[in-house]
């Protein structure tokens, strides 16, 4: 155990050589690295092509949520004012994003693919109240979007029913 001070310099050779390599860091807020297609971020509620909501207010997402952050209050559809494709619709649909752990169980539980987890991750707010997302927020297109890597390259193929429903 008598190392020579010269040996210590060998470590510096590594750091010196690194000077000539391309940096691996990116300038984050200006440049956002594409996330992989499976990345679970901000939730989205979806509409059918005819404009009706896919969500029928069955509360299965709320039942599946390990963090208990989803609140659904269902109401009957009126014949002259249909909101969803089913008998009932979600009159109130709230997700408390400050409690959400992004496990994606709501997405797995939903039998109608009404709720999915999108890829957006920059969702911090200045107030906790703003983190309770209502149905309008979840139905709207996210204001900020992130680049996503190619689904063909980094995900399994979409199942048949998703392409033809």
């Amino acid at each position: 155990m008598s190392p020579q001070p010269v040996d210590t310099l060998k470590g510096f050779a590594v750091t010196f050589r690194q000077l000539f390599n391309k940096p691996i860091t990116v300038q984050y807020p200006e440049y956002v690295r594409p996330v992989y297609p499976r990345f679970r971020g901000r939730h989205r509620l979806h509409l059918h092509e005819n404009g009706l909501e896919k969500c029928v207010g069955c509360s299965l997402c709320a039942a599946a949520c390990p963090a208990d952050c989803i609140r659904v209050v269902a109401a009957e559809n009126e014949p002259d004012n249909r909101v969803s494709a089913g008998e009932r619709y979600a009159r109130i649909y709230e997700i408390n994003m400050s409690r959400c752990i992004f496990c994606g169980y709501c997405e797995l539980a939903c039998p109608f693919d009404a709720i999915t987890l999108g890829n957006e991750f920059e969702i911090s707010e200045y107030s906790r109240d703003d983190l309770i997302y209502t149905k309008d927020v979840l139905l709207a297109e996210p204001i900020k979007t992130v680049p996503v890597a190619s689904k063909e390259e980094f995900d399994t193929p979409d199942p048949y029913y998703k392409l033809h429903s």
């Binding site: 992989y36 499976r38 496990c103």
Partner: peptide, 28 residues
């Protein structure tokens, strides 16, 4: 990055489910 590609999040992936894996292994 590899975890993100497979499980959807970088750290707590819940990719292992009772009986196997939550999803198939992604292409790539």
């Amino acid at each position: 990055d590899l975890f993100e590609m497979v499980g959807g999040v970088r750290m707590h992936t819940r990719y292992f489910q009772v009986g196997g894996l939550a999803e198939d292994i992604p292409r790539g």
